[in-house]
Amino acid sequence: MSVIFLLISASTLVAGIFLVAFLWAVRSGQYDDDRSPAVRILSDDTPTEATENK
């Protein structure tokens, strides 16, 4: 029976980690703009002179 207490504390801990991760994501501004990051990811790896020289 005691195993369930261990499982509960473990699951709550994991859930708590996710909550903290979410709070961090909000605070770092990831939810402020939901349009430009979607575009940003498409445009980074185009080889241009500038990136080739790096």
Partner: peptide, 9 residues
């Protein structure tokens, strides 16, 4: 999206 791209480059 082109605007975003240009302005971010």
């Amino acid at each position: 999206s082109s605007c975003i791209w240009l302005l971010e480059n």
